[in-house]
Structure formats: structure tokens, C-alpha cells
Simulated scan of single mutants.
Amino acid sequence: MKIDAWLHERLDSVKEAGVYRNLRTMNGAPVPERRIDGKNQTVWSSNNYLGLASHSRLISAAQEALQQFGAGSSGSRLTTGNSAWHEKLEKKIAGFKRTEAALLFSSGYLANIGVLSSLPETEDVILSDQLNHASMIDGCRLSKADTVVYRHMDMDDLENKLNDTQRYQRRFIVTDGVFSMDGTIAPLDQIISLAKRYHAFVIVDDAHATGVLGESGGGTSEYFGVYPDIVIGTLSKAVGTEGGFAAGSAVFIDFLLNHARTFIFQTAIPPASCAAAYEAFEMIEASGEKRELLFSYINMIRTSLKDMGYLVKGEHTPIIPVVIGDTRKTVTFAEKLQDNGIYAPAIRPPTVAPGESRIRLTITADHSMGDIEHLLTSFHSIGKELHII
């Protein structure tokens, strides 16, 4: 059998299951109103929570650095790819996260894999939340340590597993700060309390909380007023740019620089991206106005959807999962939303568990009241039409 014939068979099974995926072409800057595949749509699936990705200050900062440093970094940080902007941004991130130091990666995905594949050793164990992001799961798979999965945010289960793993040399508790599909917030205060009691280290992926949660947008740590051993994050969500980071002690960052393969062998992000991210952190630190507006939208939408009778998961984060359940009905719902000019793709297995298919809305500060009214009107009419509410 030729390889294409074999691959066609595998793709056919994906199509039959109703989980076939394809790319959509976005034309224009990442703002709510965009032309997608030739049709005007309001986007409700962007992680650009504070609307900074298209902000003029970030664009200007990137343009200035682009003229001075060029389009690409030309190599890894350890060869030709290190610049003053990389170092300046790392100091900014460390200050923002209240750690001694930080290290940039080319993506949050690579940061998670770099930390988890290099830090835990053979005699160690990783305790991983059931709903952790794929990058953390892959990092655990590449680690030399054993991995034990605990039930999602179940502190009793975590404590039992911490107790059962005392034979290991070291224990690492690994969790998302905000879970990307459910919009739930990890109880970081309780996790750190357990970690102290059972002599474990805590690693948090704060991708969806950075810039959003906490009084100054510092993330899950600031939200709970606690400090994990290691914080991993991305610059591609509320920060509005590209790249990832790990933050912690100076010794930990020095260790990563010498051991994390996804740092050592990966081309550095361009200095222009660093300059734009630095400007974003400056804006986030200077004002909470965009966060306040964002949370007023979140409260309004969550309350309205619940009042309609929808099953809405999560907590008060920009991620609002509306569970439909049946995969095909969820796909139909998403198609009808698009017919109404609303882009919010169906989330289906294997991204979520069978029977948990959903429309995952993400809210940004750039949405307008008109956008929100249209969204809620559409959810009401489609929900009635499909006998969901």
C-alpha cells in the first residue's frame, strides 16, 4: 500500500468521527472584526485578551527594533541569536513575575518541554493535573521521571498521590494556572500548601493568566498571593506577541541555559518580537483599565448564557466554555454561528473528552457592546433552534 492510500484511510476515519480539522485564512490584524475565508466575521476564539496584538505602541516598538536588528535573530541564543532586547525583556519578565531571573523560549510549548524534559531526573516523579495542556503532557512524556496524573483540581487526590510517592527522590507538582479548555483556575494556594507539607516543588504554566489575573495582571501567583518554584508562560496571549518564558531562581535559569534542549538548539525569537513584548508589559503594569473592561464583559456574557439555560463551565476568566455535548450538534452550532457572522469553532475530541464537545468562547477587551449583543442574540436563537435550551 502506498503511504498516501494509508493516510487517506486514517483521515477518512477522522472525518467519519466528525473531528476532521482544516485551516481557515485570517485576513488582517488580530482584531475582533476580521475577514475569514472571504467572509466578514466577529472573532470569539482569540487569545488576544487585552487587545494588545494590534496596538499601535507594540507595532511601533517592533518597527523600531526591526530597523535596527533586522527581521530574524539568525541563530540560537548561545551562538548569534542573543541581543540586548532579549536580555532586557527577560529582566522585565522576572520583575513582573517577582522572580530572580527569567529565560526566553521560542514558544510557551517549547518552554514547557524544555523545563520538564531537563529538570526532573530518573529517581523523581511528576504529579500532573488531569487537564494540563498538551505541552505539559508532552514535557512529562519526554522527562526521565515517572508521571502520576491526579484528578482535575482535586486536592484530596493530589494529597493521596503525594503521600503515595514519598519513595521518590523528588516530587514535582505540575499544573496550568488557568486551564485552556475549561477556564478553571488552579487552587495554587492549596497546591503550594500541600507541596510544603510533602516536600514537593511546584511548576505552573501561567499562559492564560499572565496579564489577566491578579491586581496588576501578574497571573495566578498574584491572584492567590503565593509564589511557586517555577513559572512558565507565553507571550502569545494577553501580551499579544510571540514566544515563551520560564521564570524562577537565578540558579534555575542558569541550569536551563545549560540543559534545556529547546533553548540550546532553537533559533531565538526576533529582537523585534522582544521589543513589542517589552512594550506590552509596560502597558500592563501601567494601567488596569483594559483588564477591568475585560472582566465586565466576562461577567455579562457568563451570566446571560447561564440565564438562557446553557451549561457554562469555568470560573471568571476570559475563557467561557459552553458545553453542547454531542460532537455533530456542536459542529452544526458552530456552523450556524458562522452563518450569523460569528467565528467560534467547535472544540471536539480528542481536545476534550467524548460527550464534552463545546463552543469555547474567549473574550477580549477589544470586543464592543454591539459585538456582545449580537453574540448573545445568536446563542439564544440557535440554542432554541437546535433544542439545546
Rank of each mutant, 00 (worst) to 15 (best):
S107P: 07
S107H: 02
S107W: 00
G108T: 08
G108V: 08
G108E: 08
Y109V: 08
Y109D: 08
L110F: 02
L110T: 10
A111P: 01
A111M: 06
A111W: 01
A111R: 02
A111H: 04
A111I: 06
N112W: 01
I113L: 08
I113R: 04
I113K: 05
I113D: 02
G114R: 08
G114C: 09
G114A: 08
V115M: 11
L116S: 09
L116Q: 09
L116Y: 03
S117P: 00
S117N: 06
S117L: 07
S118G: 00
L119H: 01
L119G: 01
L119R: 05
P120D: 07
P120V: 09
P120K: 09
T122L: 09
T122K: 13
T122M: 06
E123L: 00
D124S: 04
D124Y: 04
D124A: 07
D124L: 04
V125H: 03
V125Y: 06
V125P: 11
V125I: 11
V125F: 08
I126D: 10
I126T: 10
I126Q: 10
L127A: 09
L127S: 10
L127M: 10
L127V: 10
S128H: 09
S128D: 10
S128R: 13
D129G: 05
D129L: 02
Q130W: 01
Q130I: 00
Q130R: 04
L131I: 01
L131M: 07
L131E: 00
L131W: 02
L131P: 00
N132P: 02
N132T: 15
N132D: 12
H133P: 03
H133Y: 07
H133I: 14
A134V: 14
A134F: 12
S135F: 00
S135I: 02
M136W: 11
I137F: 12
D138R: 13
G139D: 08
G139K: 15
G139P: 06
C140N: 15
C140Y: 13
R141A: 15
R141C: 10
R141G: 13
R141M: 13
R141K: 15
R141H: 13
L142D: 11
L142E: 14
